[in-house]
Amino acid sequence: MTWISNSITGLGLIFLTHAGYSAHEHSALYSTSAATLTSISSHGGTTPTVASLPLDISIETIVAIFMICLGLVLGTPELRPIQWRVWAGKIEREGEDGFIGGDGEVDKYYVGNPFRVLESRPGFVDIRKQRSEFAAWVREGGQPAPASKS
């Protein structure tokens, strides 16, 4: 999906540049032609009216800005749930898989259930029990986790 939004934004930027360039060229051309006109009819006494930009340049500018907006909106990452129960349910249901960012890695600020520390309690960790449990696990022939699961 990102290539769609990127290409829309890019196209919009091209159109915007083109519109700006056109406007610049138009004004340059008009002022020189107006200058020659006034020099020819210098005694005419009529002041040149400043011509407004042609309609197509205005339309191109507006369309380009809308395209850029659309591209940027389409390119935003998926919004996080703002309801507590939906957010909590996502953590429980999907685990780490639900918080993988655009680069394929788990989001750096993903902490899982933030209240899990109330049950694992790192301040009161019983390291000897953990060691003996780990030793028992090794004796049962435990294998390290595969590389993808970390």
Partner: peptide
């Protein structure tokens, strides 16, 4: 750097702990 190293490892299964300490 895996994300699991940024959080207290007490709840991790032994397989993950072994992998972390091997690294």
């Amino acid at each position: 750097m895996s994300s699991s190293l940024l959080h207290p490892p007490a709840h991790l299964p032994p397989s993950v702990a072994l992998k972390l300490s091997q690294g």
